[in-house]
């Protein structure tokens, strides 16, 4: 049956990673952001590249090699992320080109695996890996790391991460990606459609708040992508995840001081500060946006399960309307 922990797994120093930027920031803002990450952020791996919409790619594409070089020079591993939903000829070609240019690739659509043809790579969170058999197929296909989908609960992570054959990465900070689509909801929200979108997604650096009819903030729209409204936060769970065999901890860029966020996570991982203290520090960095962690506990993704000292008494709160 299920093994509670990966005690046999020798875990090296836990790696902190910076996921691909989901939002459509202006080029200047991106350049500033990544130079600050290169100089100050205590992250070991940085994922670059557009995941949401190929129409945005053109704006940053030319700067990508320079930014990657800068990050590498400051000792960070650079991984090139790819689109989560690939449909056009042009997008397929872009993927094939990326695979050829020597970077480690994060595959977010199975199309990528066909292009990689057995080259080592990372399986991104947009490819479903929910069970051991699927994981093993990806491993045999030369995946060196698997980023689990946000929906995977603790009970499954403990099984999937319990292996020496592949590294396991889990998203521990940031809005949780819930769906990808062909349709652009950002355009729809502005009375436009995808083909004539005027890149309106660029107006919302942290995504577009989406409320229910009775005024409860519930989702975040980011172009063709839909994310949670709350920030997914698994700071309290870091040590448990480490125990299970998770090797990489992903911070997904939001429009907050990400270098400072990384510091909080690094210190908590290294047990320099307690999780409680980490939570207090994090709260100061993230403003009014609530935290969620329901998926981890196999509950409504939008809920927050309070971590108590006694494990039997986890307090569950599901956010209700204001």
């Amino acid at each position: 049956m299920r093994q509670a922990s990966g005690k046999n797994v020798v875990v090296a120093r836990s790696k902190l990673t910076l996921g691909p930027l989901f939002f459509n920031w202006p080029t200047e803002k991106r350049l500033d952001f990544y130079s600050r990450i290169a100089d100050e952020a205590e992250v070991d791996v940085v994922y670059l590249g557009e995941v949401v919409c190929s129409k945005r790619e053109v704006f940053f594409e030319e700067h990508l090699p320079k930014v990657a070089e800068r990050l590498r020079k400051s000792g960070k591993e650079v991984v090139l992320s790819t689109l989560a939903l690939v449909t056009s000829e042009r997008e397929m070609k872009a993927i094939s080109d990326r695979v050829e240019n020597g970077f480690l690739i994060e595959a977010n659509d199975v199309a990528c695996l066909q292009a990689l043809n057995g080259k080592p790579h990372v399986i991104g969170p947009f490819i479903n890996v929910f069970n051991e058999s699927a994981r093993n197929v990806f491993v045999s296909n030369k995946a060196k790391r698997i980023v689990l989908p946000v929906e995977v609960p603790e009970t499954s992570i403990s099984i999937l991460a319990n292996t020496k054959k592949v590294e396991t990465e889990v998203l521990v900070f940031g809005r949780q990606p819930l769906s990808v689509a062909m349709r652009c909801y950002h355009a729809r929200a502005n009375g436009l459609n995808k083909d004539g979108c005027r890149i309106v997604c660029g107006r919302d650096p942290d995504g577009l708040e989406t409320d229910t009819m009775d005024g409860q903030p519930i989702l975040t729209v980011n172009g063709t992508q839909t994310l949670s409204y709350g920030y997914g936060v698994l700071l309290n769970e870091l040590h448990a995840l480490k125990e299970m065999g998770v090797s990489h901890f992903r911070l997904s860029p939001q429009d907050v001081d990400m270098a400072a966020v990384a510091k909080v996570y690094r210190e908590t991982l290294d047990k320099k500060i307690e999780a409680d203290e980490g939570m207090a520090k994090l709260k100061k960095l993230t403003g009014k946006v609530p935290y969620i962690n329901g998926f981890y506990y196999g509950r409504e993704g939008l809920s927050w399960v309070e971590q108590k000292k006694s494990k039997t008494n986890n307090k569950i709160s599901t956010r209700r309307k204001k």
Partner: peptide, 13 residues
Amino acid sequence: PMSEGRCFLSSYM
């Protein structure tokens, strides 16, 4: 409208 099999909206709620 969503890419099926990869939509977590229902479990989110």
